[in-house]
Design a protein around this nucleic acid. Structure first.
Lengths: 205, 205
DNA sequence: AATAAATTTGACTCAAGAGTAGAATTTTAT
DNA sequence: ATAAAATTCTACTCTTGAGTCAAATTTATT
């Protein structure tokens, strides 16, 4: 019992290790997002955390693993969003709008970094990241297709619908700055409207 | 006169030099677009052109100059599109749709590569590329603003309107493959509709 | 307090890829 | 045909940043 209640304590060594590992990955992901993977050195990552480069290797196998884990962490967050099922009478468009809003919020307010560099991953790691990305994409395409069935989303190639607005999400990296003048909530509000009207069946003639 | 008429001949040494330099840049840009700047070595670029790495340095100062020139080349093409003025009674939304169609066509059919990596450029080169990008962005924002004045484009922060659909353009890199099943013209057609309905003032209210 | 385990460091190795330079080759001009 | 200019090459140097390792330090356990 005593052992059980202490299992999640911040004093617990395993918990600390995991928290530190996560901090390495989150901090690196943020730098990768802002400057690119190759323009971020292990020394850069370490200094941001107040460590030396060598200490990072106590937590991660190598730089590539950081990139791999960064991607997976983001996709896990997006999967969490997609776990929430639509309400019973909610149209697919409404559900999609909510999903997209959550994605924008993840990126603008929750410190999640959506990275685009998969070519710097090799072998199984790259394959897995691509597969995870494709899976999210397919789930979103499925939502669009169900919107085309329920009548809330207009006709047209669902993949192109998705590539268009997922482009907007991925492009946030290039211009969004958490310290900038544009507030994440305002961005999410605006983007959801633009997403909706972009594919809504209303007005489709 | 004889000298003048020969100035553009493909047999002319200067013309050949320029054509070869251009081939280096276009080929490299395509590889940068597909795999990323850092994952494309100078040996890779040379081999694609049937040269050795050292021969590239006869044409370009260094790798960074290739990246710099790649960006500039693409922005020049986009500037050309924006040089065409709207017809007298054309709404800004119609003009914008035409501009965007041309952009998509540049990327999907004309071998133009839109790159996103500016962090690998340093100093003046990076500053210039960012300035050129910002200028194109500002011109597009101006079109959106005039659409909000002429009533064709709905209200809302024009920058966000632009960031949304320019994200779609920039994200083409991640999924578009010229040898793939999706035809550039079909993509342009679809994207133009999605752009239009995304920001059209019709139905606003 | 002593010992063990965990964590961090300083100083290092290594190599991939950018870039160089002079020689070789090719092309053009005389 | 010869010389000059242009282009390409081979063989190399250099450097930056990834990664390593044993020692030093810190933390936890006995």
């Amino acid at each position: 019992m005593t052992k059980t209640t202490l299992i999640s304590s911040p004093f617990d060594r395993d918990v600390q290790f995991a928290a530190k590992k996560r901090a390495v990955i989150v901090s690196a992901a943020s730098a990768f997002r802002r400057r690119g993977y190759h323009n971020t050195s292990m020394v850069d990552i370490a200094e941001t955390l107040g460590l030396t480069k060598a200490a990072l290797y106590y937590y991660v196998k190598n730089k590539e693993e950081i990139l791999y884990e960064s991607h997976l962490m983001t996709y896990a967050s997006m999967d969490d969003v997609l776990q929430l099922k639509p309400a019973t009478n909610q149209t697919a468009l409404d559900y999609l709008a909510g999903v997209f809003r959550s994605f924008v919020n993840l990126l603008t307010q929750s410190g999640v970094s959506l990275l685009t560099d998969v070519d710097s991953l090799k072998g199984d790691w790259q394959a897995e990241v691509l597969a995870r990305r494709a899976r999210i994409e397919r789930r979103i395409i499925r939502i669009v297709k169900s919107g085309q069935i329920d009548g809330s989303i207009r006709s047209g190639d669902p993949r192109l619908h998705v590539f268009f607005f997922m482009g907007a999400l991925n492009w946030l990296n290039a211009w969004f700055d958490a310290d900038g003048r544009l507030d994440g909530q305002d961005i999410a509000d605006h983007f959801v409207v633009q997403l909706r009207s972009g594919i809504s069946a209303l007005g489709e003639g």
